[in-house]
Design a binder for these strands. Structure first.
Lengths: 100, 100
DNA sequence: AGGATAGGCAAGTGTCCGCTTGCCTATCAA
DNA sequence: TTGATAGGCAAGCGGACACTTGCCTATCCT
């Protein structure tokens, strides 16, 4: 379950894709391809990007909607919360309200 | 930079180690080894765990302090923040104070 | 219909990485 | 000093994964 999330985040190209979708949501596969190529100088094939998107979708980080022959991709940051929830920041050492 | 962080989180055994250090900080290599073996039924060699700890330390997620022949390991959750900072939650759609 | 565009499936390849094995160093106790 | 404990270094192996290539399906436009 969480395995898919961390595996998806492990690849730098996939993280760049998330960056692009954060900047502009609803991009198609070809748009993402050209952005990776132009902005980030990433020489990667269309199928490579498609496979990355599949991994991101399996992790719940990307959601897709189909319209005709277009498939739009949207970022979903919700799964990222379980990371900081799993290893929460330590309780502050200063004086605190006792919640008992 | 962030590369080390995500790579460190990518492995399930390393995430379990973080769990153990979150539960009890300041464990030695041998303590972590026996916990992985007993609690989690993970058959892994001492060197395997040692290598995992090195990766976690390179990512800043684990800090170590040496005392005599013992080396204690502590969890540091601070690097996790850059994840949620990189892809922040979308602005709420409800009525909001205009910050202009 | 037919071409063009947007995307998908599957097999093959090279590389990185998790893990083990074997040996070495350092600190402590008897 | 000798043995035991805690940890480190380096080479080697096997599997997972990112990426490519080649071909196929679906939708749109003229």
């Amino acid at each position: 379950m969480a395995d898919d999330l961390f595996k998806a985040l492990a690849d730098p190209t996939r993280r760049t894709i998330l960056d692009e979708l954060a900047e502009q949501s609803g991009q198609t596969l070809f748009e993402i391809c050209s952005r990776l190529s132009m902005k980030h100088r990433l020489g990667i094939s269309r199928q490579g990007v498609s496979q990355h998107l599949a991994v991101l979708e399996a992790a719940g980080l990307v959601e897709t909607r189909r319209e005709g022959r277009y498939k739009f991709h949207d970022l979903n940051t919700a799964p990222l919360r379980q990371i900081t929830e799993r290893w929460p920041a330590p309780a502050p050492s200063g004086p605190e309200e006792s919640p008992s």
